[in-house]
Amino acid sequence: MSEVLANTSKGHIEVRNFSLAYETIEGPVQAVTDTQIHVKPGEFVSIVGPSGCGKSTLLNAVAGFLKPTTGIVTVDGDRVNGPSAERGMVFQQYSLFPWKTVRENVEFGLKMRGMPRSQRERAARTLLGLAGLEAFEKHYPEKLSGGMKQRVGIVRALATGPKVLLLDEPFGALDAQTRVIMQQILTNMWQRLKISVLFVTHDIDEAIFLSDRVYCMTARPGSIKAEIPIPLERPRQQAMMMSSEFLALRRGLMSLIREESLKAMGGEINDMGMQGLNIELHGHSLADVI
């Protein structure tokens, strides 16, 4: 593999005593509070939680787009002060540059670093080859399917050889089959590159299937509710998703998230009430019940 991807075991992410509040007219709104997380070099860590719990906020703070209100974010001991090529990011909306071809998109980070054209072209081709996209190097992103776009997004983020890779619900907009393939591709790349990954998702299966460890967040204001190690062996296969070990992990995470989702939806809907509604609805239409 080319020198672009050279990466020693670096990429230790530390988030300590972290909180983040937005200013609004009614005063500050706490998005994330009292949070500690870490990612060890080469580790794959996911953050799951109910929608609006601040998991993306946390990720954006690690990327350097948001400043913590209190606490500190460090990567290998250096404080995060703003976005940098050291922390590659993959977005849900792909965010490829529409005016650049696939290869030019992948080259972008290398160009910013001042790498000469011929060298970065070669590097981009190698990387696109790894993702099975060499045939599409001259295409504009608009012409690609969602899965292809996101493969380009991942390759582009990896091209500069970042210490860590941050992914914000990267497969959220993809259909189920493509999603599974993308998870395999991501796992492959991660294992080859030995890079640290922080992955935000609301898909529990995805989090378990991919991760070494999963953080589960509480409803807003978000904080860490639980930290779940995933002891499943690697390489992981699709079949593992049916194993009792996987299903037990899934059940555990499900109930944690369910609790928080209900909290997020408001105090009046409690768990018992929901169960009652389910039983009453069984076999009846909603109109019958009411």
Binding site: G82, A85, R87, G88, M89, S95, F97, G109
Partner: peptide
């Protein structure tokens, strides 16, 4: 989001202006 994407690929102000 495109501006952010450029930023975390190492683009500075001038490059963001020209490239994004």
């Amino acid at each position: 989001v495109l501006v952010r994407a450029a930023q975390c690929l190492g683009a500075r102000e001038r490059s963001i202006f020209r490239e994004v």
